[in-house]
Amino acid sequence: MKTDIFVNRSVIDSKESLKKQFDISKPFRHVLVKDFLNEPRARKIVQALKKEKFEEKEADLFHLYQTKDLESTNNKVLKEVYSLFSSSEFLEIIKEITGIKATKIDMAGSLYKDTNYLLCHDDQLSGRKIAYILYLSEDFKEREGGSLVFFNSKDKKPTSIAKKYPPLWNSLMLFEVSPISYHEVEENISNKDRYALGGWFH
């Protein structure tokens, strides 16, 4: 898998500065990589994702729509993204940015429609090292909701809001999963559909 067919050259060239941002970002290590994929590729992926089957998921913590793990997708375009993210070449880039060595991935599509949300949690589950979200929605304004929200913590409990990232088209968020990686996805209060690909590096 040739990473630079998919990923913008400028991203690959700026690994060192991304590593710095990842390390110094608060309230826990993270970085938002803008213009992550080559533009036509990102367009193709979102078109393919919109054709996947999404299941409605609802519990105390969330109400959203999700695809099955894309390892088993029949869609060629999505298969390619899955292969890219799980390739050793790509995992090496992730290691260079985060300093964390991963060997495998999970990947699913998510869709937040009007009123959908994911409340505060830490993502901790055995084996999860880095969480990632590739935003594939046209830009949301902050007032439209759908932002990824990071929380400050005290004694490993979430306290106040530290940062908000409205979903930015074709950007990749990476954050380290830890006992303090408390985050949520704010309710989508617009009539736009918020699409993303996401999962974890293990």
Binding site: D60, H63, T115, Y117, E187
Partner: peptide
């Protein structure tokens, strides 16, 4: 038990 999140509607 839990109380479902109340949305903007």
């Amino acid at each position: 038990s839990f109380i479902q999140y109340i949305n903007h509607r």
